[in-house]
Simulated assay, not measured.
Amino acid sequence: MKIELNGKTALITGSTGGIGLAIGRGLAEAGATVILNGRQQDRVDAAVDQLKQDFPQAEVRGVAADLGTAEGCQSVVEREPDVDILVNNVGLFGPHDFFDVPDDKWQQYFDVNVMSGVRLSRAYAPRMEDKGWGRIVFMSSESGINIPAEMIHYGFTKSANLSVSRGLAKRLSGTGVTVNAVLPGPTLSEGVADMLREDQEKSGKSMEEFAAEFVQTARPSSIIQRAATVEEVANMVVYVCSPLSSATTGAALRVDGGVVDTLT
């Protein structure tokens, strides 16, 4: 099985590091033109340079914008009006007690984690429909099903991603445009590593060892009993963005290491 995306243009939001950048790497390796995104121009430029070094044959460019605002989303669409693949990856996360989360933080999480994908999908899906081919992916999370007590404000946005992706898949029925959600579990991204680093350094263990212990404690239902790598998550996304996944739409595709303990 060989994934080829020559002639396709992919926009990955929130892709200057972590899972987003790993997705960009996978899509660039498959031949797609890759558009990276972040809020800060210097980080976007550094990520673009990194991908160009790793894949000299690939066409890679970037656009800096704050996708937590309607204006930021519109600026991306104006800069990059023709996209075949949209990966709605940008997102905020972090543990906070329910009673300590003010209204403005709830709104911020909703704007970044949910409305960025809504706005960009609304802008790009009609163009995909006109072509008769397109891929839209919402990066949800196992936290959208197993709402964490310490991140309720985050979990509800990931549940919303599932609802929007399923409904939009139905709305685009028969058009050749697929819409899916991918649900990572605990993943050793840069953000997670930063969150764990202080305790990890005190432990004297490697980050991989400490992350595995964290998963076993915080997500004991994990079957793999470790954190996934960003590449393992990206592999699923690259597949669902490819022509090979043409019969997969409206799906919630887990890369959660077996954390979610249900059959469906």
Results as ranks from 00 to 15, higher is better:
residue 143 S to I: 00
residue 43 R to F: 00
residue 12 I to N: 04
residue 60 V to R: 04
residue 67 L to F: 08
residue 240 V to P: 00
residue 58 A to E: 02
residue 35 I to L: 12
residue 153 H to N: 06
residue 216 Q to L: 00
residue 161 N to E: 06
residue 16 T to A: 00
residue 40 Q to D: 05
residue 200 Q to L: 04
residue 54 D to L: 12
residue 237 V to N: 03
residue 47 A to R: 01
residue 64 A to N: 00
residue 206 S to R: 05
residue 108 Q to E: 14
residue 23 I to C: 11
residue 27 L to Q: 04
residue 205 K to R: 13
residue 22 A to M: 11
residue 2 K to Y: 08
residue 246 S to W: 07
residue 120 L to G: 09
residue 160 A to W: 04
residue 145 I to S: 06
residue 174 G to V: 08
residue 103 D to M: 12
residue 78 E to Y: 00
residue 179 V to T: 07
residue 14 G to E: 00
residue 189 S to P: 09
residue 53 Q to G: 14
residue 5 L to S: 08
residue 20 G to P: 04
residue 18 G to K: 01
residue 49 D to V: 09
residue 190 E to T: 11
residue 95 P to V: 12
residue 25 R to L: 11
residue 156 F to A: 13
residue 26 G to M: 09
residue 32 A to L: 01
residue 48 V to G: 02
residue 135 R to S: 12
residue 206 S to L: 04
residue 138 F to C: 02
residue 45 D to Q: 02
residue 113 N to F: 13
residue 61 R to P: 01
residue 195 M to F: 14
residue 91 G to F: 07
residue 207 M to D: 06
residue 126 P to Y: 04
residue 205 K to N: 08
residue 173 S to A: 15
residue 119 R to D: 14
residue 2 K to T: 15
residue 4 E to S: 11
residue 48 V to Y: 05
residue 173 S to Y: 14
residue 99 F to G: 03
residue 113 N to S: 12
residue 126 P to Q: 01
residue 66 D to V: 06
residue 3 I to L: 09
residue 188 L to G: 00
residue 228 A to Q: 06
residue 179 V to F: 06
residue 81 P to E: 08
residue 133 W to E: 07
residue 124 Y to H: 10
residue 60 V to A: 01
residue 189 S to D: 07
residue 159 S to W: 02
residue 4 E to R: 13
residue 162 L to W: 01
residue 96 H to P: 00
residue 129 E to N: 07
residue 238 V to A: 12
residue 86 L to K: 02
residue 241 C to H: 07
residue 76 V to H: 05
residue 192 V to E: 07
residue 62 G to C: 01
residue 28 A to W: 05
residue 189 S to R: 01
residue 256 D to I: 12
residue 252 A to Q: 10
residue 130 D to R: 15
residue 201 E to K: 13
residue 206 S to E: 07
residue 112 V to F: 09
residue 13 T to W: 12
residue 184 P to W: 09
residue 1 M to A: 14
residue 103 D to T: 15
residue 95 P to K: 12
residue 180 N to E: 02
residue 141 S to Q: 03
residue 104 D to K: 15
residue 173 S to W: 14
residue 145 I to R: 11
residue 181 A to C: 12
residue 147 I to C: 03
residue 177 V to C: 02
residue 32 A to H: 02
residue 125 A to D: 03
residue 69 T to Q: 05
residue 24 G to N: 05
residue 251 A to G: 13
residue 45 D to N: 08
residue 16 T to G: 02
residue 221 S to W: 00
residue 153 H to W: 09
residue 167 G to P: 02
residue 44 V to M: 03
residue 139 M to D: 04
residue 93 F to M: 12
residue 224 I to C: 10
residue 82 D to Q: 13
residue 122 R to T: 11
residue 71 E to Y: 00
residue 141 S to W: 03
residue 31 G to E: 05
residue 245 S to F: 03
residue 244 L to P: 00
residue 258 G to F: 04
residue 109 Y to V: 13
residue 55 F to W: 08
residue 236 M to W: 01
residue 103 D to V: 14
residue 219 R to K: 09
residue 170 K to C: 09
residue 199 D to E: 15
residue 35 I to K: 01
residue 239 Y to R: 04
residue 81 P to L: 06
residue 69 T to I: 06
residue 222 S to A: 12
residue 211 A to H: 10
residue 138 F to D: 07
residue 115 M to A: 10
residue 204 G to W: 11
residue 24 G to D: 03
residue 142 E to M: 14
residue 101 V to S: 02
residue 134 G to S: 00
residue 263 L to A: 15
residue 112 V to D: 08
residue 58 A to S: 02
residue 91 G to Q: 08
residue 225 Q to R: 15
residue 19 I to M: 14
residue 151 M to D: 10
residue 145 I to A: 11
residue 147 I to Y: 03
